[in-house]
Simulated assay, not measured.
Amino acid sequence: MKTSAPKPKSSDVSTMSSATKSYWAQWDSLLIQDGVLCRKWENVLGDSCHLQMVVPMAKVLDVLQLYHNGCSGGHLGVKRTLLKIRERFYCVHCRDDVEDWCRKCTSCAAVKGPQTRSRGALKLYNVGAPWERIAIDVAGPFLESESGNKYFMVVMDYFTTWPEVFVITNQEASTVANKLFYEVFCRFGVPLEINSDLQRNLESQIFQEICRVMGTHKTRTTSYHPQFDGMVERFNQTLERYLAKVVEKRQ
């Protein structure tokens, strides 16, 4: 392709490896850009196209390490890891490589473990618009960061399930209320309802007074029934799993 030669005949590649034959079959989709072999990739609808860098076999493990084990990778599953890689790179048998890599990842095996199926009878809570009803929860304490933060405040919208995560130094009612007002209310508007568990900071007089002034109805879960607010509790589980995979061995 560097010499702009025509496509080789099938007889010329019949004795070569399966990877070579695969690239030969995609000859019309390959091109050289800035000295790098790339592949034109179209989406399913065929209305957009972008270039993928063809990864040499010697660099495949580096890409997998970066996109799965790296801090920006988050040890995602096969499907999501494959989607992230395909946004920029291409190699033959990419799916097989990703499946093998995820299956052999010791961090994923140690943290995820077997999945248990919930047997509770779930009911739907109807919400009519984004940010009409939100859920709030405080997770922690975690190891203190260099900025002095030890807790995560998680806010999720019931309509879109969009999560917002904020780091806070403590879980006092004034700290939570201040972060909620400036980071959520000022950006998305004041919700009609706020749901939380029975944490004392979220049931304090300060927090209740803020809800009263803003015209927000405060609801709460029942004791020993975290599944009442399963959406945010499930997100906390996912967040803590990601943190457990990227934290240093000595914490």
Rank of each mutant, 00 (worst) to 15 (best):
S147H: 08
L45V: 06
Y158R: 13
G77D: 13
Y158W: 15
Y67A: 09
G113R: 03
V154R: 05
C49N: 03
L66V: 06
V155T: 15
S118C: 11
C38F: 00
S72H: 06
K104D: 08
V54I: 12
S107M: 09
A129K: 15
C38W: 02
L124H: 11
K112Q: 11
V98P: 02
I134D: 03
M57S: 09
I134H: 14
A139V: 15
C105M: 02
R39W: 07
F89T: 02
S107F: 12
G70P: 06
L83A: 13
Q115I: 12
P163R: 04
V36I: 13
L66S: 09
C105A: 05
V138S: 01
H68R: 03
S48C: 11
G74W: 02
M57R: 02
C71N: 13
V55T: 06
T106E: 01
T106C: 00
E132W: 12
L45K: 08
D137W: 07
H93G: 00
W41I: 02
G77P: 10
K40N: 02
R80Q: 10
N126I: 15
W131V: 07
P163Y: 12
G113Q: 04
Q115F: 07
A58N: 08
T161M: 14
K112D: 05
L61Q: 15
C94I: 13
H68L: 07
